[in-house]
């Protein structure tokens, strides 16, 4: 009987190790360990054995059965792993195929520049304010010390709707509104980004364009404050090494008035095509708020002073992203728009 058991063990181990899949393994399990299995059959004949032999054979059968069970278990794991690997192999895909996604969104470069400027000034305590684009002559000109017939109105050929209403030629129109609204005369710190309109259209002028205006009014606001503020503004926007140059100029709503150049950010001031070899790029108009403007809008010029500045945003956006033609900004070619689809670094 002992030999018989050893024979079963030897046969079963051989067959189990050759099993090719889980089904064959299961069949072998039934063949040897099932109710009618060969090893189970051996146990059933135990009755014929002597009492001395019985425990010896019994423990031998149990030992073989345990060995077989362990073997089957291991084999099962092994076969399952093989089957899983085959399945995974079958499921292999081409990861380089295009992704499923919706269209790519993008923010217009002009609004990118506006948001950057807004964030900078908001962090310095400025409010971003808006005003009507369809403005009155009173706010666009008269309250800014530009009475009817003033020659400086010629510089801003306007789109009139009636003799009183026009599309604003400058965001400065909002200056008077902000002053008039501030009855408590708390310090004014505002910027006004927005659309402006002038009656001109050529390669470098669009009849619709964008400006940002800045206005600060309080007691003891000085020209030095204007300088300091514009230095921060331009250096944050164009780089810490940017130099500023103030040139005396004339705007009816400021006194004194300046045009402000920045050192050319392309060549660093050495002279290049962008700055027309001058090393400077004219970027802002600025000055101290004219006493007439303060007076007309409810401020006592003996007590309050202020500064104002303005700059064209279209050019800033062009400089920032290297856009070569202003008309791209308004054509809205999808091939242009989709280029502005990542975060600004």
């Amino acid at each position: 009987m002992k030999e018989q058991i050893e024979q079963i063990k030897e046969n079963s181990i051989k067959e189990l190790s050759n099993a090719k899949d889980l089904k064959e393994l299961n069949d072998l399990k039934v063949k040897y360990l099932g109710k009618k299995g060969e090893l189970t059959q051996v146990l059933k004949t135990m009755g014929t054995l002597s009492t001395e032999e019985r425990p010896i054979i019994g423990s031998l059968v149990n030992k073989v059965r345990d060995e077989l069970n362990e073997l089957i278990e291991n084999k099962e794991k092994q076969l399952k792993q093989i089957e899983l690997n085959q399945k995974l192999e079958k499921e292999k895909i081409d990861v380089t195929l295009p992704a499923s996604k919706n269209k790519r969104g993008s923010k217009h470069p002009l609004n990118r520049v506006i948001e950057e400027i807004e964030d900078l000034f908001v962090s310095m305590g400025y409010d971003v304010v808006d005003g009507p684009e369809l403005e009155t002559d009173e706010y666009c000109f008269e309250r800014l010390n530009l009475p009817k017939g003033h020659p400086a109105r010629d510089m801003q050929d306007s789109f009139y709707i009636t003799t009183e209403y026009l599309l604003r030629t400058q965001t400065s129109a909002v200056q008077a509104r902000v002053m008039m609204a501030n009855k408590e005369k708390t310090p004014i710190r505002v910027i006004v980004p927005g659309k402006t309109y002038r009656r001109e259209d050529d390669a470098t002028h669009s009849h619709q364009f964008n400006q940002v205006e800045g206005l600060v009014i309080d007691e003891n606001i000085t020209l030095a404050h204007l300088k300091g503020t514009l230095e921060v503004f331009m250096r944050k926007l164009l780089g810490e090494n940017t130099q500023l140059r103030f040139r005396p100029s004339y705007f009816p709503f400021t006194e004194p008035s300046y045009e402000v150049d920045v050192s050319c950010f392309k060549c660093g001031g050495k002279g290049c095509n962008l700055c027309k070899q001058t090393g400077w790029i004219e970027l802002l108009g600025a000055g101290m708020v004219h006493p007439n403007v303060l007076k007309m809008n409810g401020y006592d010029p003996e007590k309050y002073t202020g500064f104002a500045f303005g700059t064209g945003l279209d050019r800033l956006a062009m400089f920032k992203y290297g856009i070569t033609d202003m008309r791209y900004l308004y054509r809205n070619d999808v091939r242009f728009l989709t280029q502005f689809d990542q975060m600004d670094t």
């Binding site: 269209k103 790519r104 969104g105 993008s106 923010k107 217009h108 002009l110 609004n111 684009e133 789109f159 599309l167 659309k195 309109y197 009849h207 619709q208 900004l329 308004y330 809205n332 999808v334 728009l337 989709t338």
Partner: peptide, 8 residues
């Protein structure tokens, strides 16, 4: 995609 159009 954000655009920038003329109001006129």
């Amino acid at each position: 995609n954000e655009t920038l159009s003329y109001i006129l």
